[in-house]
Amino acid sequence: MSSEIAPESAPEHPNAGDTAAVQPLAAGASAEHPLSAGASTEHPLDGAYVALARPRAGWAFLGSEIAVLFRRRRTWVMLIALAAIPVLIAVAVRISSAGSTPGRGPAFLGQITNNGLFVGLVALIICIPLFLPLTIGVVAGDTIAGEASSSTLRYLLVAPVGRARLLLVKFVAAAAFCVAATLVIIVAGALIGAALFPIGSVTLLSGDTVSLGEAGVRALLIAAYVTLSLLGLTAIGMFISTLTDIPVGAMAATVVVSIISQVLDSLPQLDWLHPWLFTHYWLDFADLLRQPIDWSSFGSNALLQLAYVAVFGALAFGRFSTKDILS
């Protein structure tokens, strides 16, 4: 991420000697880069694209940012933790001798023994209220504050990277994590379900049965829906991240915001507010499991999340572009 800094500029900056990032390195090499959180993470340095034209450099910047995110040990731990949830569910259902009573526990739990593909859905229902917002909060809250706290932000901006472009790249990388997190749950659920239970044609909420192939398409649609649902929170997290230099604070605040929104959504006295809460449509992904598909919640959710991204993206730009970068 700090790779666009011209190597010549490094000696002029105090503290520059602390980081390996400013050392001129061969393309593709990576260097250990200390973070304030204490975690040692790998930052790839791709010095080759410094010389590239700006449009291509933008894509390379994005690619580099995503690579940094997914090479972090923290990212892997979070994805593995998410993948462990469907595994836990499947194993628990498999080893419990008593058949589960339909109507108890999370929706679809009773269908797992008939069809292992439902493991991923049950895991999604369990993850959406807390675990997914938690991981999104960590990633989104870290976007700007993490750079600031590890003193890499100013080097990023010394290089000819506009602040708007930096925000955009950070947001797209965080959105890529949303895609990965959702897919990890669904794919891990499908794999462990296929390993422990019979799989076959899938019963929809309407009582109709669809083939395995169509069920796969609908699972991908659900992944798209859940990813979309998380973008509003990602934008909120990025805005909070521009307000502080302490990444942990931004992460915690993002998670708290998602919990507050869900609490407000559960109060019937505030039903006028509910359609405006970014968590309101989170569990309505099941509308994709009706026959025919009910697209209305998909559309409402997409519009709502886009509005949140626009509002909090603009707020983040306003804050970040006027901020004095001190670290």
Binding site: S206, L283, A286, R290
Partner: peptide
């Protein structure tokens, strides 16, 4: 008639 609930549905066909 499909009575729609969150994560559930009742059908009368």
């Amino acid at each position: 008639v499909q009575v729609i609930d969150q994560l559930a549905e009742t059908d009368l066909v």
